[in-house]
Design a binder for these strands. Structure first.
Lengths: 377, 377
DNA sequence: ACTCTTCAGACAATCGTTTGTCTAGGGCAT
DNA sequence: ATGCCCTAGACAAACGATTGTCTGAAGAGT
């Protein structure tokens, strides 16, 4: 039994055979009698606990970790556990990591923290990692190449056992497993989790084509966005098959590094100034689509009556925008989870990991698309 | 000069007086002659570097850290630095942290990873922390009390030197500095960064009052949301001063734990079924406001013609919604930055930290509010 | 009474750094 | 030639945990 001893932190309960000093850590003068250990100057370590119990740190460690194959009587085990509870002992993951060469930590590289796309992926990642007992550092780089280069190194220095890179242009192989979400470059040691863009292009173009749209404007993503290129090439390929013409003068290009709808507004304004006829617009993503719709509306064009708009991603706002967005859903949360799952498998030494994991998109039809009316510009 | 030696990793360049073994780490059999150390089984440590240089680890550490007051000739310094570069030496922050008892790591506690409010605060936090050379663990708890209790302990075990809690109901004091964003409970050792809710209520109510609204519906936040209570009390107080009546039958209460506009939709639907006249709605936040607007529209009510809606937060979607939202802006990014700044000050031992840091809200007038027309319900 | 097992736990090395102290040797002045 | 100081590093002890090996004592068996 361990009666609580207010005012005294360390006390040898039973003198051990060898070490029977009442060693009191230097920090713990008797001035420390405020409360039990509330204002803990330092968290209590294994050694402190061991001294208190009259045992050696190793033994305490064995008990608390339930190491099998060690003979320690039940009574002692309980004494140890009681003391651990009493002092609210929390093992130092730092020390443990150093010793075991395992940190249960990964690094997550992301361009931006407050963007819908990235945060939905991150929530999938976070869910899986926390569930599996891992923690993660997130580092945002805003597409700055020097940071993209530097952060993986720093993360490794902090013990990251693997890295998940979201929409990030990694340049080369790393010494630890890497999973890239929306990564297109083939790099040795990097698993790419990405959308089936071919299928996505089919869904979007077929939908518009079936609605009778023949004059379609296209918005290309920013050069630094990983998906831009692949998505565009898929669109071009599918358009050819469907005999849909892609006109250069109806093709606009995002440039700015924004995560607000402001992204899509000016480019669509410019498009409108050309006065070319089009009845539909395929936007690079939902955020830009919202900006595009605003630009159309400001030009007295109704969506979908005059122009149909298809978004991409299906971020949360898409369903509640006015008009609600027809969009190509990426299962972002799932993609994050898959990325985390694959990464942990690789960390745990699973060799036959996939080099690539393609997930299927889904067409979500809402209000922003309608049959081509013919009266539009 | 250090000619590169492909195929040989460790080589004593100059025999030191005492230790002149060509000690090769067990892992580095001569099978490892693929490339220099690309597929690094293990990152190169100070000891490996020291063996290679014929120095002792301590000396190498002294050089690389530029420790002042140590006499080491320039030539040696350069030799050391060249080797560090060559092997791409990255010090283990783990080991360093253990030794120096400083981790340059903080923990961020957040209910949800993919919510506009939280992520905007996080981006402010992230900006400041990274800029100051800190990394952070984020942990999301979805308002589950056991996780809210557990995560701070785990974070401390991982060496977090401080914690930032966003919209999180902490219960008690911790042994490390804590800054709460939108925390209202007064807890010893916790600095609260919060909005001036009194001022916010004034801005919202005055605005509607000046537009002629007299029948105003109010939406209260979820009980688990930190701001709910304070915000509501401020509204009640200001309403009394302005002689605005708060009718129970026009007061609705959010319950669900959602971060999508779905949050506000059903409660407003229910409100509409009561068929009570109101010309304006003050929403708990922008997300719920978007859902509310959708509910109004589905009931054939126009915003702002029939009902004016005021949001709260000014998330990015607010400006681009249709109609764009009149809202009370919280400087979320700034609040995150302030929280991080205060936390780091406290970690660095700054004693006279504020117990509270109130930031001013701002009224952003957009399209969702208009003069009361009288023709509304 | 003697040996052999087993039990309960101590001991020590280790993970990769940092940092206070110590020393061998060289150069200098006397 | 002697003593002293300085230089350039080595040495060792941490930090807090884990883990393989070792030992003293008690108990069992003959």
């Amino acid at each position: 039994m361990q009666p609580s001893q207010p005012g005294v932190i360390l006390k040898i309960t039973r003198g051990g055979p060898g070490t029977s000093e009442t060693r009191v850590k230097s920090g713990d003068s008797m001035a420390q009698n405020k409360k039990d250990q509330k204002r803990a100057d330092k968290p209590v370590s294994l050694k402190i606990l061991a001294d208190y119990l009259g045992l050696c740190p190793a033994t305490v460690s064995l008990v608390l970790n339930n190491v099998p194959g060690r003979s320690i009587p039940q009574e002692t085990r309980e004494r140890v556990r009681a003391a651990a509870r009493k002092f609210n002992y929390q093992p130092s993951l730092l020390a443990r990591s150093l010793r075991k060469q395992r940190t249960f930590t990964v690094g997550v590289l992301v361009p931006e923290l407050s963007d819908g796309y990235h945060t939905m992926v991150m929530s999938g990642i976070g869910d899986h990692l926390m569930q599996e007992g891992y923690f993660y550092f997130s580092a945002h780089h805003r597409h700055k190449p020097d940071l993209v280069e530097e952060y993986p190194r720093l993360l490794m220095g902090r013990g990251a056992e693997g890295i998940i890179a979201i929409d990030t242009a990694l340049e080369h192989e790393l010494a630890i497993p890497v999973v890239a979400v929306a990564g297109h470059k083939k790099i040795s040691g990097v698993t790419n989790v990405l959308l089936d863009h071919r299928r996505a292009a089919e869904l979007a173009l077929r939908h518009l084509h079936q609605l009778g749209h023949r004059h379609i404007a296209f918005m290309r993503g920013q050069p630094f966005s990983s998906d831009s290129d692949t998505r565009w090439r898929s669109i071009v390929a599918v358009a050819r098959e469907l005999n849909i013409e892609i006109r250069p003068e109806l093709t606009i290009q995002l440039e700015k590094d924004l995560t607000s709808p402001e992204l899509g507004y000016p480019v669509v304004q410019q498009l409108l100034q050309l006065k070319r006829r089009f009845t539909a617009l395929i936007s690079f993503n939902d955020i830009a689509a919202i900006g595009a719709i605003r630009a159309l509306r400001d030009a007295n064009l109704l969506v979908p009556d005059d122009v149909s708009v298809v978004g991409f991603d299906d971020i949360k706002a898409a369903a509640y925008h006015n008009p609600s967005l027809t969009t190509i859903r990426q299962p972002l949360h799932d993609m994050g989870q898959s990325a985390a799952r694959i990464l942990l498998q690789r960390i745990q030494g699973f060799k036959d990991y996939p080099k690539e994991c393609a997930v299927p998109p889904e067409l979500i039809i809402r209000e922003s698309t309608a049959p081509a009316s013919g009266r539009s510009r």
